[in-house]
């Protein structure tokens, strides 16, 4: 029996307009429980607007959405009870120390016991490696420290869902690495829904991805499916030597759907799309090698990088507005 997918976030035709500007246009989204869901899109695509709408900080113009089955407009307080949120630029109460900010955030959820609350705050400071700065006012924190404290604040209530808006975008490589490690550590406890435009990060930690452009979700699903590309299975064959008629011979094979070549550094690189993976694995290379005038220097199944998929989708439009 097929089990229904257990989604934490679901939106149906969610739209948000600011006057004539349509920030979100009928967004349909499903975020599975315990996934790390990367939400991609060029600047201005509507990523932050969607997050704010989910959190009740902004009202949808039309459409609907639920988180944990609660309506995002009518039951926002009940939703926020189970959420941790990291804004794009984390801000804190500046006259409070890091520990006091954590205590302040924790008191929105817990009344006591005080010792347990303190313990939880210390645990969070350890998690983000800020224990030694716990008693410093946050006013003097660096960008990386603010980001890490922001994650600790988002996580203090044991949220079932973490919403992180560009958690690593303003950080140097070491800070980014640290944030990704924290996200991986949290993976087993919570669902993480985060926006970013750093595609390497998404490919590294996410198991699900959605790409937003012009306020619309243009693709969404498990990352391995997204990375398999829309052209299906493609093999790359790099040859040396003349290969007259190879394109025709390949095209004649019943399971080859497309073959194209381009020259690079004295070699010819063939991209062969196939409809039958097993047949291609068994005999594609053999067909190529039947031409004795060529030497095969490389043969592999093509792996897409997320950047390729992303650029293909939002091609020719760096601005998602």
């Amino acid at each position: 029996m097929i089990q229904p997918v257990d989604n934490v976030i679901e939106t149906n035709g969610l739209s948000k307009s600011f006057g004539d500007v349509h920030a979100l246009r009928g967004v349909d989204l499903a975020v599975p429980r315990h996934s790390i869901f990367g939400f991609l899109g060029p600047n201005g695509a509507g990523k932050t607007t969607l997050m704010k709408t989910l959190l009740g900080l902004s009202r949808p113009t039309s459409g609907s959405g639920t988180i944990f089955g609660h309506d995002i407009v009518q039951e926002s307080v009940a939703i926020r009870e189970r959420i941790g949120y990291l804004p794009q630029q984390p801000r804190f109460i500046e006259y409070l120390t890091a520990r006091e900010n954590l205590l302040f955030a924790a008191k929105f959820f817990f009344n006591g016991p005080q010792a347990k609350i303190q313990e939880r705050c210390d645990e969070m400071l350890e998690l983000v490696d800020l224990a030694d700065k716990a008693n410093r006012p946050t006013k003097g924190f660096s960008g990386g420290e603010k980001q890490r404290l922001g994650i600790a604040l988002a996580q203090v209530n044991y949220p079932d869902l973490l919403i992180l808006d560009e958690p690593a975008s303003a950080l140097d490589p070491i800070g980014r690495q640290s944030v990704l490690e924290i996200m991986e550590r949290l993976r087993k406890y919570t669902t993480i829904f985060y926006s970013t435009h750093i595609l390497d990060d998404v490919q590294r930690v996410s198991d699900n991805v959605a790409i937003l452009n012009h306020g619309q979700v243009v693709t969404s699903g498990p990352i391995e499916i997204i990375l398999s590309g829309k052209d299906g299975v493609v093999y790359t064959v790099t040859l040396k030597g003349k290969a007259d008629g190879l394109g025709q011979r390949l095209s004649d094979l019943p399971w080859v759907t497309h073959a194209s070549a381009k020259a690079r550094n004295g070699s010819t690189i063939w991209q062969v799309s196939v409809s039958d993976e097993a047949a291609a694995e068994a005999s594609l290379l053999r067909h190529v090698l039947s031409d004795t005038t060529v030497t095969v220097t490389e043969f592999s199944r093509k792996k897409y990088e997320l950047e390729e998929v992303f650029m293909e989708i939002v091609k020719g439009d760096g601005d998602g507005r």
Binding site: R80, F92, A105, F109
Partner: peptide, 8 residues
């Protein structure tokens, strides 16, 4: 914004 993202 941060405060109102809490159950407030």
């Amino acid at each position: 914004e941060w405060i109102l993202s809490k159950p407030v």
